[in-house]
């Protein structure tokens, strides 16, 4: 795995500083790269949430427009959001609007820093944000500690749906999809033809499955495969001009489904399927084996029910 400058700095800080010093460390060191004309990508660490990465694990995309930046996903903590906002203010003429691609916290717990402008999300995402904010925040305070200071999650309030999102004079095609979660918003920048896929696509980082419906996810991938794009930004992983993220995510879904089908069909208990680790060809992806372990627990019932016929009931 390639270490970015930010990961190196964060990792070193987390390892060497005592806790009080960490509490005084507000630093999210961003490394924005302009991957296409006016499209800035701030890549997340290819890891799960943990104290060394401060929750900065998903990709953040900013589109430069005459009216300021359109910010796609806002970071994993309030302070992460503030750091992203500072970049937009200093380099992109402020913020015109932001978008939450879905309701997982790494993508929207930075909303506080953007709440003075419209925050767009699909209705299903807004509902899930409101319902899950408290539990998600408790979990992240536990994992991230002082990185979460001041984070009080603000759900999106502007409903997005399929169609055109035209903010600041840079039209974006919006597509409402599902499968990774109940609401996965996919965007295409019309000027450059860049696909901003959210977490329907992962590259070199194991996909996460807490709210996944694999059949729907696969159908969304089939729709994405039909679209001509000039480049792809996955929710986690590098920008690429080719369709590597699509191919890899589809192969991971197929492989994960086949593995849990085989486990449930051969009489394994879930603890055994978990301990067997990820599919060997995907064992080296970022966030594995932890993400596979989590996914096994989250999705096991989907496979078990089909493997066990009804044999009785209340007597």
């Amino acid at each position: 795995m390639k270490l970015t400058r930010r990961q190196t700095l964060l990792g070193a800080a987390a390892l060497t500083l005592p806790l009080p010093a960490m509490a005084a460390l507000p630093d999210y060191r961003l490394n924005p790269q302009e991957v296409a004309d006016g499209i800035w990508l701030i890549e997340g660490a290819q890891e799960s949430f943990y104290r060394g990465n401060g929750g900065a694990i998903c990709n953040i995309v900013m589109l430069a427009t005459p009216g300021g930046a359109v910010v796609i996903d806002t970071g994993g903590t309030s302070r992460h959001g503030a750091a992203l906002r500072a970049f937009a203010d200093q380099r992109l003429g402020g913020v015109a609007a932001s978008v939450n691609t879905h309701h997982h916290p790494d993508h929207w717990f930075g909303n506080q820093a953007f709440a003075d402008r419209p925050i767009h999300a699909l209705p299903a995402s807004i509902e899930a944000q409101a319902a899950g904010a408290q539990a998600l925040a408790e979990g992240l305070y536990r994992i991230l500690g002082s990185w979460m200071n001041g984070t009080a999650p603000v759900p999106a309030e502007t409903v997005a749906d399929g169609g055109l999102l035209d903010v600041g004079g840079r039209p974006l095609t919006c597509m409402a999809m599902a499968g990774h979660t109940q609401g996965d918003l996919v965007l295409i920048d019309q000027r450059t033809g860049t696909l901003i896929a959210g977490d329907l696509l992962f590259l070199d980082r194991a996909p996460s499955f807490p709210d996944a419906r694999i059949a729907e996810w696969r159908a969304s991938l089939a729709s994405l495969a039909l679209i001509e794009v000039s480049g792809t930004i996955p929710g986690h992983g590098a920008y690429r001009r080719d369709n590597a993220a699509l191919v890899q995510t589809r192969a991971y879904l197929d492989g994960f489904e086949a593995r849990l089908d085989a486990a449930a069909g051969q009489g394994l208990a879930p603890a055994e399927a978990l301990a067997a680790g990820p599919m060997p060809e995907f064992a080296g992806l970022g966030a594995n084996p932890e993400e596979y372990h989590r996914a096994t627990i989250q999705r096991w019932r989907d496979f078990e029910t089909g493997a066990l016929p009804v044999i009785g009931g209340s007597a």
């Binding site: 486990a263 051969q266 055994e272 399927a273 301990a275 067997a276 680790g277 599919m279």
Partner: peptide
Amino acid sequence: AILSHVLPGGEAALAAYGGG
């Protein structure tokens, strides 16, 4: 009697995993 080994790569992963 643990069956993790019936999945590809499962034997080595189980050995490395240990179980908590």
